[in-house]
Design a binder for these strands. Structure first.
Lengths: 138, 138
DNA sequence: CAGGAACATACCTACGCACGTATATGCGTC
DNA sequence: GACGCATATACGTGCGTAGGTATGTTCCTG
């Protein structure tokens, strides 16, 4: 589960509403659909999206499928949010997530290496001067 | 500033990279562009997006525009993330944000009111029974 | 096992957005 | 003031995705 996907889940109003509802009590799809005022298909697809990313879990009970937040003692949305951003939780998460971006992995190196000199072909202009942020403050 | 917009900022890889870089030191646009390997336009538009939502601030210095995280003692990304999700910060934020969704404001009421009875026209079927999640666990 | 209810999935459409090209604006030097 | 550089903005394009319609799957009841 990539942190960026968590943010992607939470940046949609409908998914935020679903998480908010499930944080209070488990609900079956027809109840979620009723409360949200969405179609059955839209509700089901949002739930599938969240389920595939582990943000909600589903269990069948007869003809109904009950959705709830994944197990773990505090299952309120506040807990979800806190886990995301609490340094003790989010920092490793963020680090692991950033490591998956090969691009990001070298951002800092490039910043400290290449930018010690003036950026973008300093020889191209006689006016060229070093931008202020070249001096790395570390 | 709506919480959902913060999530929207953070769910994009490029914006997350920008935040990560600015958390270490202020940078001008040309340096960000250089490090990120993006075009000038793409970089500028991402910065405009973040700037309009208050996640970064810009100050002009000569021909350059220096971007940095908004003032406030701890300006690391970890702080940004912690502020978002720390209960003391995020809960009011979330509440204020949810209040802006008129839809959400009544979700809980509808859930506890309407769902005490069976959803979706119980008279339509002789098989109709009450779904399990009808009984509110509070 | 026939029929219906709850839920999921395949396919289509509309819209938001990330990025590119072209152009405008602000600042500094000569 | 002319020119160049740094940055911002207007407009067009392609892609991801949220929603809808149609249909499949699972479960229950009679």
């Amino acid at each position: 589960m990539r942190l960026i996907e968590i943010y992607h889940c939470l940046c949609d109003e409908t998914r935020l509403r679903i998480m908010h509802l499930l944080a209070q009590a488990p609900l079956c799809v027809c109840h979620l659909q009723e409360v949200l005022g969405l179609s059955q298909v839209a509700t089901s697809k949002h739930l599938a999206y969240l389920r595939k990313r582990g943000l909600v879990v589903a269990r069948r009970q007869g003809q109904w499928v009950i959705y709830s937040l994944p197990p773990g003692p505090p299952r309120e949305l506040e807990w979800q949010l806190r886990c995301l951003a609490d340094c003790r939780e989010a920092h490793p998460l963020l680090a692991a997530d950033l490591r998956t971006f090969q691009t990001i992995r070298f951002d800092c190196e490039r910043r400290s290496e290449g930018l010690a000199t003036a950026p973008r072909s300093p020889s191209s202009s006689r006016h060229r001067r070093v931008p202020p942020t070249t001096r790395t403050s570390r």
